[in-house]
Design a protein around this nucleic acid. Structure first.
Lengths: 295, 295
DNA sequence: GCCAACCCATACGTTTTCGGTATGCCAATG
DNA sequence: CATTGGCATACCGAAAACGTATGGGTTGGC
């Protein structure tokens, strides 16, 4: 059963004539006649009544016609849909993001995305630091908004911005009275540590910063997420040094203060599988850059 | 766009491997690989990700897959449907019938038909004597239950029974007291004449019968249908000589009496276009014969 | 670290199928 | 009776598909 035969069949049925249909199909009449007879042989019954003034569908032919036209439409629609997905006009974009970035970026990113790729189904999923890499690798997210970037040979990265480190402290702390906090004032204070994803769970993202200023902070707790860190800060367990954007998700009772003389920052990056040929990634990066620029 | 390619594509997508799919399709692996690449060239985008352990659909491939499988199913369903119609397992049978036969035959015929051809859509239409031929010729009915048969070179006929002529008279008529009426008693009485369809509107179906018995009946009225005839009989306009089955549709106040010594009858026949290759006609005739036999 | 196994891609010759041209057959028409 | 219009058949050249042989890349085991 060949789609070409069905196409020919539909053409003949609509033209009610082999000759007319052949003309419309830009081919000679005899081969078309042959194809129709082959189709009839395959079905095992005549599909047309041959009259002296052209061809007319039999009942069997009518039964075939409706389904054949639908099948033709579906097939070409399928090709078209595949093209649309490949070109980025349609499809699905699954966006992973880390909680720190959610409040700062998503409100600007999502409308921008919907405007840029209106035919695309978007879905969003929060990523934890420990599983984000796997979620990108197994394609359960197409792109990931990360801070900092994922470091993996199969994963490609586009830096779209950076966030300065700031000090997260309880409003009640004496340090909160300062406009900015000199690094030296942190010496000896307990630190709520967030691990750097590249350096194992016992690491901290701010080790280089502290070392450079020769500040030593005993680690009071290790936590996985910025909101855990802020909860512990609020509980008086210690201070946290967090990227600036985290303050948008900060609870009442926590204030952020810049660190004087410390310009260290964490990169905000879009990360995706190197072999993902999704055409939406480029567009996504542009949208994310816009969203970051207006942060 | 070729249905074979789509079939191959679906097979590869389901097997997630060219080799496995080739085996299932009973063909060698290389040509299948070639066909897949040709399909990808036609779409203009890769449909599979080639990994080291087989093939995996891209998003574009997934978009195509759903539609391609539907298209395949529709196409083979179309072929199947055409076969079913051609074999008489499905389809439509449009049955025309003349009013005289309706009450006598349809109640037995319709259940019989529904049992014999359960997958077939039946529809029924009353035919008038003047248009029945055209309705068969233009195929607006597939078969016609007629009395008498249609006489036309393009129309084929199967005789399935016959109905004796009987006298239709008002209950109040003195003739109604007789068990059967001798032909001689009709001499001189006014006749409600039904034309014989083969002999023009001025004819009467009972001319040969009367002539053979040398009975002369003046024609009081000419009517088109048996129910008109019976209405006029009831109105006292005259007598009618009608096929026996008409009495099933007779109103109160009319009785039918056999004609003594007159065995003339009208054929009941199934009529259809000679070139109609509907496989249902044979079955229909069998059902109609059964229905007539139990009249 | 090399070799074997696995899987897809490419190359080439063979076979099948398709399309074009020429022509025949049939019925309707004048 | 000839002509016209429409489909069917015959034959040939062209295109497409299939099979066999083979290459190349990766995985996994010894």
């Amino acid at each position: 059963m060949d789609l070409r035969r069905l196409r020919y069949f539909v053409a003949v049925a609509e033209a009610r004539s082999v000759g007319k249909a052949a003309e419309r199909l830009r081919m000679a009449q005899p081969p078309l006649s042959v194809q129709i007879r082959k189709l009839e042989a395959e079905v095992g019954a005549p599909l047309f009544r041959r009259g002296t003034r052209g061809m007319d569908l039999t009942e069997a032919g009518q039964a075939l016609l409706v389904r054949a036209s639908e099948a033709l439409a579906l097939a070409s629609d399928g090709i078209e849909a595949a093209r649309a997905v490949a070109s980025g006009k349609r499809g699905r974009l699954s966006v992973g993001y880390m909680f720190v970035l959610a409040n700062a970026i998503l409100p600007r990113l999502i409308p921008e995305l919907r405007r840029s790729v209106p035919g695309v189904d978007l879905d969003f999923a929060e990523l934890s630091a420990s599983t984000r890499e796997a979620r990108v690798l197994d394609r359960s997210v197409t792109v990931a908004l990360c801070m900092p970037a994922i470091n993996h040979p199969e994963i490609q990265v586009a830096r779209i911005g950076a966030q300065r480190f700031m000090l997260a402290i309880p409003t009640s702390s004496p340090l909160a009275r300062l406009g900015s906090v000199p690094m030296a004032r942190l010496h000896g204070r307990p630190l709520i540590a967030l691990p750097h994803p590249d350096h194992g769970p016992a690491s901290s993202a701010v080790v280089p910063l502290l070392r450079r200023h020769q500040v030593v902070m005993p680690i009071a707790s290790r936590v996985e997420t910025v909101h855990s860190a802020m909860s512990l800060v609020l509980a008086g367990e210690g201070l946290a040094i967090l990227p600036a954007c985290a303050q948008l998700g900060a609870p009442r009772g926590i204030v952020f203060r810049p660190l004087r003389d410390a310009t260290d920052s964490l990169d905000i990056a879009v990360c995706w599988r190197r072999d993902s040929q999704s055409p939406l990634i480029g567009t996504f990066i542009k949208c994310a850059e816009k969203a970051v620029a207006r942060m």
